[in-house]
Nucleic acid binder design. Structure first.
Lengths: 210, 210
DNA sequence: GTTTAAATTAAACGTTTGTTTAACTTTGGC
DNA sequence: GCCAAAGTTAAACAAACGTTTAATTTAAAC
């Protein structure tokens, strides 16, 4: 719960980027120290070890995710489908806003050996699911959403699609279709496209109509 | 194009599993040699280096994928939607049948530095897309499929969903829901569930009906 | 049986790894 | 101005890394 100094935050940010780009084992503490412009020993001094540094990144981002979830008490006056739409956009915004961290999550969730980090990932996913679930079941009981909906699979497609889009960005960027756009325009363009796609997906599955 | 001896195949298989479980940099050549029960030097002797070993795994699996694609000339007597269904099931079967390799692909596609392996991944995805594309456009022109379909996004959801399911398996396995099933039953159960979900997704987006 | 090439081995190679040490500097309270 | 704590540094540490070497065994051809 302690605050991080500017220097500590610099290390966290650089480490997050390098872990995302080259993987945890593909990044040395010397790489991190050099890019963050600090002495190698400072990393152990502040975070204890390289492993603990990764854990710190996770705790830091997870705390933000917890706040994000608490703020997700969607407007009750909205129709169920609009609640879903609002959630999709906020998930999308969140995940595209912390792409480096999402890359690390993509990687770490593949690790077979039990790591403290992997458990946190699935806990987070369960929480996200727990947010979507009641909205769907309420609407089902009200006869608004269809009965046989595999909400787990639907959320899997949601996360899976976004996790695929993140590395795909770098390649789509080179398409002639997007060449004349600024970086900002491109990102907004793509986000819109993913948003429309995911909303179509959810609407189709939940309501059986367009 | 050369054939691999039993010993070489053993190295490839073990390396594939370890790379999938712990990542490329998280796996040492000593780990591989030990589990494959060969001398460390044999890996350099056969494959040149650790990097080339990874490349060999990719070439080996990619060759199989090329054959897979060529065999995917779906029955022309089928209705467009049934062609899509057939493709979904074959993609799903293929990817779930080589989960270790798919894990490596998931990891490697995140690498920011240009690697020979990353380009191969996107080439393969483009080929998969090239298979789906004509079926969809033909059916669109025939008025069977809806006009505004983002086929790239749809394929992204297809791959994304399956790539999410692979690591999720290990956790779902511990759910009380699946405890009393054998490993084989569980896998078939899950495959069916994913298949149904993906078909619903495609049908909804392509035809706007259930 | 001899010869030649391929296969296999244990040992060593030079780097790089994450971490620690011990000395030094800065900071803030008194 | 003094002192203790925190911050910072270059250097050193042992361990692990990927790769190579040189010696030995196996296999096949003649």
């Amino acid at each position: 719960m302690e605050e991080y100094s500017e220097k500590q935050l610099s290390i966290l940010t650089v480490a997050e980027r390098l872990f995302a780009d080259q993987g945890f084992h593909g990044t040395s503490v010397r790489d991190i120290a050099q890019e963050a412009d600090v002495n190698i020993a400072m990393i152990s001094y502040y975070f204890g070890s390289k492993d603990k540094l990764l854990e710190s990144i996770f705790k830091y981002r997870m705390r933000a995710s917890q706040r994000f979830i608490q703020d997700l008490l969607v407007n009750d006056s909205l129709k169920p489908l609009d609640k879903i739409y609002a959630m999709i956009d906020r998930f999308l915004n969140k995940m595209l806003g912390e792409q480096n961290f999402q890359c690390i999550m993509s990687r770490e969730q593949l690790n077979s050996e039990q790591s403290p980090v992997r458990d946190l990932i699935w806990e987070l996913k369960r929480e996200m699911l727990g947010l979507m679930q009641p909205i769907v079941t309420d609407a089902q009981e009200a006869g608004i959403f269809h009965k046989d909906v595999d909400i787990v699979m639907l959320m899997t497609s949601l996360f899976g699609t976004i996790h695929q889009i993140i590395p795909a960005q770098k390649l789509l960027r080179n398409d002639p279709e997007f060449q004349n756009l600024t970086e900002e325009e491109f990102k907004e363009n793509l986000k819109q496209r993913v948003s429309i796609h995911l909303k179509k997906l959810f609407k189709a599955i939940l309501t059986h109509e367009f």
